[in-house]
């Protein structure tokens, strides 16, 4: 096993073999999750706290199920509703929670870097469930697992990531992960939604959807963040759908066996045609959700192992 990290804060610090370690273990958890007795005790006795400073349904549910299936005591805290309203700082919140001796802290926060900051102040394992526009590592890992299972490999694929790249932490984590695994990554979207100097990430940038999709093995659509509409990044939803929404005609430019992905939640009729999203021959969107639970189980299992090793080491040193 080669995964030695204390936290999972992003894809950036991971090496390819660490990524593969997580994915291999996740494959085993897919089997467990499909079995009638979907329960394990690897996290028995451990406490997992899900702290979501930003509304989330699917990611939070996925982490919660993952923790429960592994036997952890799981607690959800909807942080938008609680202490930050009373003026408590992020660090004070972290210290308060830390005093309750959690073992795994799953954190989502609207500010980039906030999860890194929090991780410096606690002595448990921290999983980044999305920070601002920075990273969403478990999403990239579940996407990678979905791709590997659908395509049989995770290298030398042409993958088009389409839509609102600039505001997307999913895109950043995916660009990093797919790049590390030696894939050809393309970013497709209106130039107002492509981050500055994107070409320096080692990707190709297209503002024409058909050119961007030409021959692609994987088409990864991103959610158009409607709250960004106020910023005037695009003229209208209908023009956006016309130029960048995925429909059968645009998808025809991709490889014949191309798969369609979406991290959800989808805006049907804005970035993706509803019929296409439901087409079980092309769309792997439901598999992504399934892989999400397995990947999160694998990540938490590995972090818990590292945490136990670290604690055992401290005890043997008597500190």
């Amino acid at each position: 096993m080669t995964f030695r990290a204390r936290h999972l804060l992003g894809i950036e610090p991971l090496k390819p073999d660490e990524i593969l370690t997580i994915l291999d273990l996740a494959d085993e958890y897919v089997d467990l999750n499909r079995s009638p007795q979907k329960h394990s005790d690897v996290l028995a006795g451990m406490t997992q706290i899900n702290m979501f400073f930003e509304a989330s349904t699917r990611t939070q549910a996925s982490f919660e199920i993952a923790g429960k299936r592994l036997g952890a005591d799981v607690m959800n805290m909807a942080m938008q509703a609680s202490s930050i309203k009373k003026g408590e700082t992020l660090i004070d919140t972290a210290l308060t929670l830390n005093a309750m001796h959690p073992d795994l802290l799953v954190v989502r926060h609207p500010n980039s870097g906030a999860v890194d900051l929090l991780a410096q102040k606690v002595n448990c394992a921290v999983l980044n469930a999305g920070d601002g526009r920075h990273e969403h590592p478990t999403q990239a890992l579940l996407d990678a697992l979905t791709i590997r299972r659908a395509k049989g490999r995770l290298h030398r694929l042409t993958i088009a990531i389409c839509g609102d790249i600039a505001h997307s932490r999913v895109a950043r984590s995916n660009i990093l992960l797919l790049g590390k695994m030696e894939n050809r990554v393309r970013l497709v979207g209106p130039p107002t939604l492509i981050p500055a100097k994107a070409t320096e990430f080692g990707v190709e940038v297209y503002d024409d959807m058909k050119e961007g999709l030409a021959g692609a093995d994987v088409v990864m659509m991103l959610r158009l963040q409607k709250e960004r509409m106020d910023g005037g990044f695009i003229p209208s939803e209908r023009e956006y759908f016309h130029r960048y929404g995925l429909d059968a005609e645009k998808l025809a430019h991709a490889a014949d066996d191309a798969i369609v992905m979406h991290p959800g939640p989808m805006n049907r009729g804005v970035e993706i045609d509803g019929t296409l999203a439901d087409d079980i021959n092309r769309s792997v969107i439901q598999e992504q959700v399934e892989m999400g639970v397995a990947v999160r189980m694998a990540a938490m299992d590995l972090l818990a192992r590292n945490l136990r090793t670290a604690r055992a080491g401290r005890e043997s040193l008597n500190v």
């Binding site: 950036e12 980039s112 870097g113 920070d131 526009r133 920075h134 600039a166 950043r172 500055a196 100097k197």
Partner: peptide
Amino acid sequence: KFASLRGL
């Protein structure tokens, strides 16, 4: 590139 990577 740096700001884009950090998502700031």
